[in-house]
Design a protein around this nucleic acid. Structure first.
Lengths: 145, 145
DNA sequence: ATGCAGTTGAGAATGAATTGCAAATAATAG
DNA sequence: CTATTATTTGCAATTCATTCTCAACTGCAT
C-alpha cells in the first residue's frame, strides 16, 4: 500500500511530466508509482519488472523512454556505476554522492559539504566552472570485531 | 621518435605482461609503444588506430584483450566517463582524479590530498573500508574577461 | 464524441566490448 | 635450426544495455 508521501511523490513526478507537455498514460502512471515507492536504486530492468507487476501493459522500451523524460525534467537521476546497467532514483532528496558495497552492490547515500566545496575549488584552480561531478566510493563492510 | 622514457615505459609494460606469463607478440609490442607514447586518454578505438599505424597486423580484438591483461596487472587504468567508450592510460603516474571539459571532452588530471583523506573518513563513518573510488569533475572552461 | 499529435509494444538496430574457433606464431626443448 | 606445443590472432558471431522504427493505439482538448 502506498503511503501518503509516496502518493504525493508520484503526483509530483506526474506534474513534472505534464510540465514537459507529456501525456499521462497507464504505463507511465504505473512507472511513477514504482519510482515513488522505490527506496533503493533499481536499474531499468528492475523498474520494468515492478511496473509490469502493476500493469502488464508496460514495456521495457516505455520504461526507458519515460525515465529519459523524467531525467530531462530533473526529477529522476540516472547513475552509471562501474560496469553495470544504469540505476535510477527520484531526485526528491538533495544532492548526495554514493558509497557502493563491492560485495553486495548495495548503494548508500552520503553528502559532505567539505568535499563539495573542495571540488569547486579544484575546478576553479584548473580554470573551470564546475557543472556537475560524480563521486563514488567503492568499499567493503568492515566487520566489527 | 620515442624518447628514452617512452622506451623505458614500454619495457616496463612488457615486463608486466611477462610477469603474467603472457607472450610478447608483434601486435602487443605495437600497442605497448602506443601506450607508452600516449600523453592523453585514448579509447580502445583510438589505440587501435595508432597501433595499426605502427603495424597493420593489429586487430581491435587484440587491443581489447591486451588492455584487459594490462589492466589486470595494474599497469594500465580503464576509465569509463559519462556515456562514452572507456578510455585508457598507463598507470605510471601516482593516483589522481579527472576533470573533464564537457565541451571538448578533454581530460585533465588532478590530485587533492584533502579529498582523498575526506573520502576515507566518510567511508569509515559509513562502516566501510574504502577500496577505491571514482571522482570526476565535469566543467566548462571559464573565459577570463 | 472526434481528431490528431503524442505514445505504445515488438522487434530491429546500435555501439561497445567479449568470445569461439581455426589458423598462425612465440617460447621452449632437443 | 627444427619440431613441439601452448598461446595468440583475426574474423565473425555474440552479448548486453539502450535506442530507434513504425504501424497501431490512445490521451485529451475541442
Amino acid at each position: 500500500m502506498a503511503s501518503t508521501s509516496e502518493t504525493a511523490r508520484a503526483t509530483e513526478l506526474e506534474r513534472a511530466l505534464r510540465a514537459q507537455g507529456v501525456r499521462i498514460t497507464r504505463q507511465r502512471t504505473a512507472l511513477l508509482k514504482v519510482l515513488a515507492a522505490a527506496g533503493d536504486h533499481p536499474d531499468a530492468n528492475e523498474l520494468h519488472r515492478r511496473a509490469h507487476a502493476l500493469d502488464a501493459k508496460v514495456s521495457l522500451a516505455t520504461v526507458y523512454r519515460t525515465l529519459t523524460a523524467l531525467e530531462a525534467q530533473g526529477v529522476v537521476q540516472r547513475h552509471t556505476f562501474e560496469n553495470a546497467p544504469a540505476r535510477f532514483e527520484t531526485a526528491n532528496t538533495p544532492h548526495h554522492d554514493h558509497m557502493i558495497d563491492i560485495d553486495t552492490g548495495e548503494v548508500m547515500e552520503f553528502r559532505s559539504e567539505r568535499i563539495e566545496k573542495l571540488q569547486a575549488e579544484i575546478a576553479a584552480e584548473l580554470g573551470f566552472e564546475l557543472v556537475r561531478h560524480r563521486l563514488e566510493l567503492y568499499g567493503r563492510k568492515r566487520r566489527k570485531d
